[in-house]
Design a protein around this nucleic acid. Sequence first.
RNA 1: CGGGGAGUAGCGCAGCCUGGUAGCGCAUCUGUUUUGGGAACAGAGGGUCGCAGGUUCAAAUCCUGUCUCCCCGACCA
Length: 429
Amino acid sequence: MKFSNFFIPTLKENPSDARIVSHILMLKSGMIRQETSGIYSWLPLGYRVLKKIIKIIEDLHELYEVNQILMPTIQSSEIWKKSGRYDTYGKEMLRINDRHSKELLYGPTNEEMITALGKQHIKSYKSLPQYFYHIQSKFRDEIRPRFGVMRAREFLMKDAYSFDINENEGVKTYYRFFRLYLKIFKSMGIPIVPVRALSGEIGGSLSHEFHLIVDSGESEIFLDKSILESDLEKLKDEDLKNLNSFTDEYYKNNKISIKLEKFRSIELGHIFLFGDKYSKSFDFNIEYENKKLTPFMGSYGIGISRIPAAIIEHSSDERGILWPEEVSPFEVVIINLINDSDETNKVSNDLYQNLKSKNIDVIYDDRNERPGIKFSDSDLIGIPIQIIIGKNLINDGNVTLKFRKDGKEINLTNDKVLDIIIKKLKNNK
RNA sequence: CGGGGAGUAGCGCAGCCUGGUAGCGCAUCUGUUUUGGGAACAGAGGGUCGCAGGUUCAAAUCCUGUCUCCCCGACCA
């Protein structure tokens, strides 16, 4: 993408409505636009980040043999009456009537719908286990939306659901998703911490949340610091179960007496093993060894649209955002400082075309703007690698490779840049 | 829902107390000069002052109602 064609309404001044750094930077960098309280449009820059996150989630769910589907955002009240949650869910649920006065709702989650789907189509125990997921907008009518997309009312969520023949198998599936989650966040460059949690509204016995530790986080967690350094993917199910890390709620309710450290954090994922709560209320039964079997279920959520904000909370400086390469809207930005030089134009353009042909996400700042503006925009939007092309090219045939995170600069002849960037990005993949 | 704050040009704000018909910075447009860290000068365009009603010769300003947004608290990915 050329910067001159890229729609990116950046702001020079801090928006008056934003308080926390991620909200400020997302508005300033033109990632999002508020439509009304707690409801946002994703503009090109923001949507690119979102799509990177979605791609990682999709690829890894595919790797874990989870079926991707797409359920509707609008649901009928009937299935919610069946589970009993139409009454208990409360005002968080946005209820709508259609022209025939039929009661509809904008789904806050999909346990009921997936259970109805399972009941209709899963007819034999031999087809279990079954795993499904989808990525879709949800609506929860929060009492007070805040912090931009961090606590929005409409938000994008990945929610997966599992059906197993019994609790034993359900627990295996649960830890399968647990590991999948560790892998997903690792692939996004996010140091995630799993914590034992209460199940809340969804119900059930086993539940974990996946948190990112940041000082501005809304949640509080208690944990044994050694967890932060250990490679959790290598642990056995049993060890994952016994990790010393808890949500504050769980910590207090269960009167945990071990000495643990308290951190502020953002919840990015939540998994539940809730058993037959929904399959039972839907009368979802399968024949098994001449008896009835009620599938054992779990659900596994990731708050996708919250992730970009969480990453920014975790990683920014006074100039702007610092994206991890894995989710950065672009991997490389080419900054051409001299717009009316044939030489810099040619080198910039060639490099741009070459990087694109190697499938590297590159944005080329070809605007007729002053250097200061180009530098500050690049820093603001947080692209990890900058290639600066200007005077040095004309004088010495050099371009400058600059890393957003530490500001380190390397001068190279322009024929070497391509190889070095390709090598660097490949090493991290 | 309780408590607080705010709606004036695309963005950030002043003006309101003490009514006299709207201003500043940034952005935008034109021109000239600039160009390795948010340029300078000259000129130009842009506003139903959130909305409705009232008071008044006259309302951004006073009064009443209403809508929206933000912040603090209880709820949540």
